[in-house]
Amino acid sequence: MDKPENWLFCAQGIAPACSEQAAKDSARITRHWQADRALLDHAAARPNAAALFDTAMGAFDRMLKP
């Protein structure tokens, strides 16, 4: 239970068997965390990044409608 992802799964009530499965792949999960953060960093560097914080989620759905 020393790895953060195990703590995370246990806190959400995931069964030990599943937690053990996750522990086997802990390096992969950690890479996901790092990759997710890198993606958002990349997104924040894009020209339209200002919209990241001031665009309501509903704007997307409205754009898809007539």
Binding site: L39, L52, F53, M57
Partner: peptide, 21 residues
């Protein structure tokens, strides 16, 4: 399990960026 471990802020920011994209 990958989805379970993702930060809520990451998810929300990705969804917000969608309209701009």
């Amino acid at each position: 399990l990958h989805g379970l471990s993702m930060a809520a802020t990451t998810y929300v920011q990705a969804r917000r960026l969608r309209a701009a994209d």
